[in-house]
Design a binder for these strands. Structure first.
Length: 326
DNA sequence: CGACTAGCATCGCTCCGGAA
DNA sequence: TTCCGGAGCGATGCTAGTCG
């Protein structure tokens, strides 16, 4: 399993970067408050804190509106298997968590209407399958392992379906919450809208694996077939490479190209014999993302410049006030 | 000889239409 | 909103043929 700890999604920009941009602002506010703590009055500190709170609130509202999915990269690369509808439930529920908070409510309620609208599912199908889906989701297990840990746990610790009120409720397990909230580094995020049209259960996982690398300005990812199968919990399935390629890789690549902000192709990597050992995914952001990035970077430079000017004049004014500058 | 490809059959999940 | 039955499609396993 490849786990790279160097990723810090706050440092880079993409289509969802207005959120990161806010994060930058928060970071700058925090640093500015820390730096000027000696000469900042308590009233100003209160003002800074209020500004901070306002920004956090705006960010949370935007996050909710855009339904962003935040996941630790440990979870992105974990080994688990979910059906399409189980994936949908988990992703929609994750998008409703406030991932930046240290503590947040583990129980998420989802209305049947919202679920059907988001994923374009017929109501009749929803009622047909929801109980079975919740049952199977309740038993699903995540396996996370690297050199240091081997951790197994369930996605959810409880499930409820209210027949008459037409909504269901899941409670994330304690263990999985460690990989969903209070994420400070080594995590990925994406807009739920990119994956709602997927019809293949493996597309989400492969999209997430590519999306993780997106933040590192790396446009290639080589994954051993063995590792990929382990992540998708398909170790004893698709014994022939061709069926694995047809059913998993090709379908995921097609859906990712069709519905998401990533365009991707792949090459087969052979070992010494004719055996396919690994897949090299080569991916790129689509044009609109590059355009957005350019705009956001311009805005960011403008903002930083203005911020620096304000800060300098503020510090100078304080020093004058304290008689340190003539 | 080993790996890949193609075709076929079976099973299960998802989708669809209709009724209560 | 809920349930039922059937159709369609994907996942999977098996076999035979091809290729280097």
């Amino acid at each position: 399993m490849i786990i790279d700890n160097s990723n810090n999604a706050f440092d880079l920009f993409d289509d969802d970067d207005d959120i990161d941009f806010d994060n930058e602002i928060i970071k700058e506010f925090d640093e500015a408050v820390a730096k000027n703590s000696v000469i900042t009055t308590s009233a100003e500190q209160t003002k800074n804190k209020k500004n901070n709170d306002v920004i956090r609130q705006v960010k949370t509202e935007e996050q909710q509106q855009k339904l962003l999915v935040y996941k630790s990269n440990y979870l992105v690369n974990a080994s688990y298997k979910l059906s399409l509808n189980e994936q949908r439930i988990i992703l929609l529920a994750i998008s409703k968590l406030d991932s930046r908070e240290e503590f947040c409510e583990r129980t998420i309620q989802i209305k049947s209407n919202e679920f059907c609208d988001r994923f374009k599912i017929k109501k009749s199908d929803f009622y047909n399958t929801i109980n079975l889906t919740l049952d199977s989701l309740f038993n699903r297990v995540v396996r996370i392992k690297n050199d240091e840990i081997k951790h197994e746990f369930r996605f959810i610790s409880s499930k409820k379906y209210y027949n008459n009120l037409s909504y269901f409720e899941i409670t994330f397990s304690n263990e999985i919450m460690n990989y969903l909230i209070d994420l400070k580094d080594n995590f990925s995020k994406y807009d739920l809208k990119h994956v709602v049209n997927f019809k293949n259960k493996h597309s989400v996982r492969i999209y997430e694996m590519l999306n993780e690398f997106k933040y590192k300005n790396i446009k290639k990812r080589v994954i051993k077939i063995e590792e990929l199968k382990e992540c998708l919990d398909l170790k004893n399935e698709y014994l022939r490479f061709n069926s694995f390629r047809e059913s998993v890789i090709d379908k995921a690549v097609n859906e990712i190209n069709k519905y998401t902000n990533i365009s991707v192709r792949y090459n087969k990597i052979y070992n010494s014999s004719k055996y396919v050992e690994a897949i090299e995914f080569i991916f790129n952001f689509k044009y609109s993302d590059v355009e957005n990035k350019a705009k956001i970077n311009t805005d960011k430079k403008f903002y930083n410049k203005r911020k620096m000017e304000e800060k300098n004049s503020d510090i100078k004014a304080k020093k004058i006030g304290m008689g340190l500058v003539l």
